[in-house]
Amino acid sequence: MKTLEKSYTASFNEENGELHSSIAGLWSEDSIQEYFDAVNDSAVPLLKARKSIHAFVDFSGFVPQDRGTSEKIRDHLLASAKFGLKRIAIIGATPLMQMQYKRLSHGIEVSFKDNKLEALAWLRS
Rank of each mutant, 00 (worst) to 15 (best):
K86M: 05
E29F: 04
E18T: 10
S42G: 13
E109A: 02
E34W: 11
S52H: 13
T9D: 02
E14W: 08
V57G: 07
Q100M: 13
F59N: 01
K82N: 10
R67T: 15
G107P: 01
S11D: 10
V110C: 03
V39S: 02
M1Q: 08
H76K: 13
S7E: 13
N115I: 04
K113G: 02
F112T: 01
D41T: 06
R50Q: 14
S105R: 03
Y101K: 10
R74Q: 15
W27E: 04
E71Y: 12
S60L: 09
I73N: 12
L78K: 09
S60W: 04
I32Q: 00
I32W: 01
L85E: 01
G84W: 11
T69N: 05
L96H: 03
E71W: 14
S52V: 01
A119Y: 03
S11V: 05
D37S: 11
Y101R: 06
W27H: 07
I108C: 04
S125F: 10
D66Q: 12
F12M: 03
L96C: 06
M97C: 05
N40R: 15
M97A: 10
E34P: 08
W27Q: 01
V57Y: 11
A55F: 09
F36H: 04
L85S: 04
S28T: 12
S28N: 08
D41Y: 12
E71C: 10
V63I: 15
F12S: 04
Q65E: 01
Q98I: 03
S52L: 10
L78I: 06
Y8P: 13
L117P: 03
D41W: 09
T94F: 14
E5H: 07
A79R: 09
K48F: 06
S31A: 06
F62H: 11
L47V: 09
W122Y: 11
R124Q: 14
I32Y: 07
S125K: 15
V44R: 15
S7W: 09
A81Y: 09
Q98P: 06
R74S: 14
W27S: 00
Q100R: 06
N16I: 08
K2R: 15
S70I: 01
S52Q: 14
A55C: 12
K6I: 03
D66H: 04
A119C: 08
D66F: 12
S31G: 09
F59R: 09
A79E: 06
V39E: 07
N16L: 07
E15T: 08
Q100E: 07
E118C: 04
F112C: 06
A55V: 01
D30N: 06
H54P: 06
A43L: 14
G17E: 07
I108E: 03
V57A: 14
V39K: 07
A49Q: 13
R67M: 15
Q65G: 12
S28F: 08
W27G: 07
A89S: 08
E34C: 07
